[in-house]
């Protein structure tokens, strides 16, 4: 069974093609000189130039980037703490509720989470904008970060930590010298996941943002509803390239790190 047989190859080719062809078409038409989406008018980068003139889109991209950076960092800290709480703190009061609240946002429809958070912010009389969107994103993405970090923590060989402890290292020292470096790839992966989820989110942001704080997905959504435009194709291509580069680089880093450890 070590050689690839024809039906398997067919399944692989069909599956991968299904996953990638739509994205490929989107990227291809971002270089189309014609405004019509089905007519190929020759190669052009005019839509990328047009992007640079679109101040509303640039502002939205900048806001999304800020929200994603801040919310991913906060979510990773919360995720690390939650993972430690779940994997290392043994039993504590209310552990079941805690584990439930960590898992819930993963299956909760975003429209419900968004509605719930908005009602909270309205009840608190909070001014809606950067911070309300950021808080919403932290709440959603911290759960994903927790799961990534926790799965690494429970697989960890405890003997190194115990050895360090036996040699007299303080728990803080053990954590920073042994535990943290060993789970660093998972922390990075958790941060990346939180970052891309935040950058991508439309529904939570639509509920929790206020006037004047339109994120990039909100901007894309409102122009996409009016129809397909090559300019959005260009913006999407840039976004896809950015995320794919970061993810591939990170997975190479993690792989190298894993190889270095074996």
């Amino acid at each position: 069974m070590n050689r690839l047989r024809a039906p398997h190859l067919l399944a692989l080719v069909f599956g991968i093609a299904f996953l990638y062809l739509p994205i490929l078409v989107l990227v291809l038409y971002s270089f189309n000189a014609s405004r019509l989406v089905t007519v190929w008018g020759g190669f052009s980068t005019r839509w990328y130039a047009a992007l640079l003139q679109n101040q509303a889109l640039l502002d939205a991209a900048w806001l999304s980037l800020k929200v994603a950076l801040v919310s991913a960092s906060l979510a990773t800290i919360l995720g690390l703490l939650s993972a430690l709480a779940l994997a290392r703190s043994g039993r504590f009061a209310g552990r079941t509720l805690f584990a439930g609240m960590i898992a819930a946002p993963l299956v909760m429809p975003e429209v419900i989470t968004g509605l719930a958070l908005l009602l909270l912010f309205v009840g608190m009389d909070a001014e809606r904008g950067f911070w309300t969107v950021t808080i919403a994103h932290v709440t959603l993405t911290a759960c994903f970060a927790t799961i990534v970090i926790q799965s690494r923590l429970v697989m960890l060989d405890r003997s190194l930590e115990e050895a360090a402890q036996d040699l007299g290292a303080t728990p803080l020292r053990v954590f920073f010298a042994i535990t943290l470096p060993m789970i660093a790839p998972a922390i990075l992966a958790g941060w990346l996941l939180a970052f891309t989820l935040s950058l991508d989110d439309l529904v939570l942001a639509s509920f929790t943002s206020g006037p004047g704080s339109t994120t990039l997905p909100m901007r894309i959504y409102s122009s996409v509803r009016l129809g397909v435009t090559p300019e959005i194709n260009a913006a999407s291509t840039l976004l896809i390239t950015l995320v794919a580069t970061v993810v591939v680089l990170a997975s190479l880093l993690i792989k190298r790190d894993a190889l270095a450890r074996t």
């Binding site: 989107l26 989406v37 891309t196 950058l199 439309l202 999407s236 976004l239």
Partner: peptide, 19 residues
Amino acid sequence: LVILPFWTSFLIRVYAWMA
């Protein structure tokens, strides 16, 4: 290869199908 599309924006992948 299978995971990578999951990382690219959900909204953009739906938009790709609109075209």
